[in-house]
Simulated scan of single mutants.
Amino acid sequence: MSNQALALSNSNVAMAISNPGALGTIEAYISAVNRLPLLSAEQEKNLAEQLQKEGNLDAARDLIMSHLRLVVSISRQYLGYGLPHADLIQEGNIGLMKAVKRFDVSRGVRLVSFAVHWIKAEIHEYVIRNWRMVKIATTKAQRKLFFNLRSMRPDGQTLNPEHIEGIAAKLNVRPEDVSEMEVRLSGRDMSFESQTNDDDEFAPISYLSDDGDHEPTSVIEKQAYDTLQSSGISQALSLLDERSRRIIEARWLQDEGGGATLHELAAEFGVSAERIRQIEAASLKKMRKALSE
């Protein structure tokens, strides 16, 4: 997502929401939203009531616009994850809109206090979803550790048992969860297959493959092969007439030694060797069709 996708028009808020890109850069966007006026408690209450009771979208727009600077401020806290600031702001704006939609002025709290949680939740989800190719945190404990472990870890030090126990107690998670997240954060994404032709032997696909018989695809293939070799062949043979079945069995299904020759079978049935070959070809074709089905 480009910085332009976040720009809002300071002169016409309605046009800005429907037509992002008017300001050009993320810096211009931040400068613009910081100039937008803040609402007094009375103004905020009136707008919230209009939205809640009348569904007034202009009131919703004004509530959102007056709190865009809050999203910018919160998004700066997540710049250390290496994700574009523009995208962080965009996700935070989505959280702000959700907060405005659910805001209940009768609870006696200001929108800024209510919206903080929605903005952070949306940014958290975006960071976790995009920080690595493989999602690094799924459970509640993992999410808590993901956003707190780096700041709680001693600079440049590996966590020892004492550190792990202390962090686990502060965050109310299991010590083993702390150890696992430490390993996850210290790792990096790696392509399963080599991106070049020069280092194929160093790609994970070369040393993580299972050469045994336990790989699922191999197991299924073996089961299918065994089925074809037993009941599959028997069923296919049952579709042939007696002469054709005799020819196939004599030519291909002998347990010991080589199969009968075309001339031997020609003498047995009193036909030419060419006729035996034709019957054999037609029978094999019929059997292949039956086995494929």
Score class of each variant (00 low, 15 high):
residue 225 Y to M: 02
residue 226 D to S: 09
residue 227 T to V: 05
residue 228 L to V: 06
residue 228 L to P: 01
residue 228 L to Y: 08
residue 229 Q to H: 10
residue 230 S to P: 03
residue 230 S to I: 08
residue 230 S to G: 14
residue 233 I to P: 01
residue 233 I to Y: 01
residue 233 I to D: 09
residue 234 S to G: 08
residue 235 Q to L: 08
residue 236 A to Y: 00
residue 236 A to H: 01
residue 237 L to K: 01
residue 238 S to K: 00
residue 238 S to G: 02
residue 239 L to A: 14
residue 239 L to M: 13
residue 240 L to H: 00
residue 240 L to D: 05
residue 241 D to N: 14
residue 241 D to C: 12
residue 242 E to W: 02
residue 242 E to M: 10
residue 243 R to Q: 14
residue 243 R to W: 05
residue 244 S to N: 09
residue 245 R to L: 06
residue 245 R to Y: 03
residue 245 R to T: 11
residue 246 R to D: 15
residue 247 I to W: 04
residue 248 I to V: 15
residue 248 I to T: 06
residue 249 E to P: 07
residue 249 E to C: 07
residue 250 A to S: 04
residue 250 A to L: 07
residue 251 R to K: 11
residue 251 R to Y: 05
residue 251 R to M: 09
residue 252 W to Q: 07
residue 253 L to F: 15
residue 254 Q to P: 03
residue 254 Q to I: 14
residue 255 D to H: 11
residue 256 E to L: 04
residue 256 E to Q: 04
residue 257 G to H: 02
residue 258 G to N: 13
residue 259 G to F: 02
residue 259 G to H: 00
residue 259 G to P: 02
residue 260 A to H: 08
residue 260 A to E: 10
residue 261 T to E: 03
residue 261 T to Y: 01
residue 263 H to E: 15
residue 263 H to K: 14
residue 263 H to V: 11
residue 264 E to Q: 12
residue 264 E to H: 06
residue 264 E to T: 13
residue 265 L to P: 03
residue 265 L to I: 12
residue 266 A to W: 04
residue 266 A to Q: 10
residue 266 A to C: 06
residue 266 A to G: 07
residue 267 A to N: 15
residue 267 A to C: 12
residue 267 A to D: 15
residue 268 E to D: 08
residue 268 E to P: 07
residue 268 E to C: 09
residue 269 F to N: 10
residue 269 F to R: 10
residue 271 V to F: 06
residue 272 S to C: 11
residue 272 S to E: 15
residue 273 A to H: 01
residue 273 A to V: 08
residue 274 E to L: 05
residue 274 E to F: 01
residue 274 E to P: 00
residue 275 R to V: 07
residue 275 R to G: 00
residue 275 R to K: 13
residue 276 I to H: 01
residue 276 I to L: 04
residue 277 R to P: 05
residue 277 R to F: 01
residue 278 Q to L: 09
residue 278 Q to I: 12
residue 278 Q to W: 10
residue 279 I to M: 11
residue 280 E to P: 03
residue 280 E to A: 13
residue 280 E to R: 14
